[in-house]
Design a protein around this nucleic acid. Structure first.
Length: 322
DNA sequence: AACAAGAGCAACCGCCCTCAG
DNA sequence: CCTGAGGGCGGTTGCTCTTGT
């Protein structure tokens, strides 16, 4: 048995809202509120609209303090940084941008920011392409048919917080296609641990890193509310990374100019916690292609875990976190 | 000037989660 | 505990406007 529709689709108006409908909805909600029931709302006002449609119209367009118009550079930066950190959780990203709706941000990302990012990347690549890179690209064409190299993304997230004495090699998750992206020098060697997409990736990481590096999430417990939860054995750092959008994986995988992503990820601190990183340029505010120099973690694994748990507890998270 | 292609965005769709009965 | 309604959210669609030829 299928699910009952929320409204009689044959008898509701669809398509663009008229100014009259907007005015009706706006004045009613401003006077009476939503009443906690969107489905019943249109009947009360005499609107021939689906309740969900009313909700969407109110949230995305009619409610007060909605910001329309172009996005600022700072907003761009926040969106990109959070997208790289938490993926397409538009409502969470929107919560960091007062006046912006998740729908707005989603549209903005899909139509402009994504292209801006990829366009910049391609331009950079074209201008600096050398023989080895061409070779790598040819090799990658074969690889395109395979699973996106999600681990590259997750590894890269660590970069800003990775102690310089523990340089990284990014490795494709597919053990049969170990094309490596050298981020800094060498070691540790992830290849020695058999990898498949269903294995416990956190365990592997844990093993290799001697518990020293801490995830961005661990530094920013606010984001832990989204998905990254500690379990009894530590923090499950990787459970979401397989869901990373392909183009971001590709971007990270493809890039030889990791500094750009350092800047993005390191910028999280500026956005959420206040600065823990310093820009390598004279400006205090990081911008595109502006490498950030981040201090190595001051906290150890246990410290971070404790802090994360405290935050979970404070925010009344379910007991599974304790 | 006319047409096609592309870009931008509002709105819809449908799945998932929560919670009341 | 089970079920179904409502809300929330991410993905997608399709209309309108702009730009290029």
């Amino acid at each position: 048995m299928g699910r009952a529709p929320c409204c009689d689709k044959a008898n509701v108006k669809r398509g663009p809202w008229s100014p009259e409908e907007d005015a009706k909805l706006k004045s009613y909600i401003e006077e009476h509120g939503t009443g906690g029931n969107w489905i019943a709302l249109p009947h009360k006002i005499g609107l021939k609209r689906c309740g969900k449609s009313c909700r969407l119209r109110w949230l995305n367009y009619l409610r007060p303090n909605i910001k329309h118009g172009s996005f600022s550079e700072e907003e761009d930066h926040i969106i990109c940084t959070l997208y790289l950190s938490i993926g397409s959780r538009w409502s969470i990203i929107a919560a960091q941008l007062p006046g912006r709706t998740d729908n707005d941000i989603k549209n903005y990302w899909n139509t402009r920011l994504k292209k801006k990012l990829l366009g910049k990347q391609r331009k950079d690549q074209q201008s600096s392409k050398k023989g080895a890179q061409v070779k790598q690209e040819m090799k990658r064409e074969v690889f395109d048919d395979l699973k996106p190299p999600s681990l590259c993304m997750s590894m890269n997230l660590y970069q800003s917080y990775w102690p310089s004495e523990y340089p990284l090699i990014l490795t494709n998750p597919d053990i049969h296609h170990q094309e490596q992206l050298h981020v800094k020098n060498q070691v540790p060697n992830f290849n020695q641990y058999p990898f498949d997409t269903t294995s416990n990736q956190a365990e592997m990481f844990h093993h290799n890193c001697d518990e020293k590096p801490i995830s961005t999430t661990a530094y920013h417990p606010q984001l832990a509310n989204t998905h990254y939860y500690p379990n009894g054995d530590g923090i499950n750092l990787f459970q979401e990374f397989n869901n990373y959008p392909y183009e971001i994986n590709e971007l990270v995988y493809n890039t030889t100019q990791i500094e750009q992503f350092d800047g993005l990820i390191g910028g999280l601190d500026n956005i959420i916690n206040g600065s823990n990183c310093t820009s390598s340029s004279a400006e205090s505010t990081p911008s595109w292609g502006d490498p950030l120099v981040c201090a190595p973690p001051q906290m150890g694994y246990e410290d971070c875990r404790r802090e994360l748990l405290q935050n979970c507890h404070r925010d009344q998270q379910p007991s599974r976190f304790q």
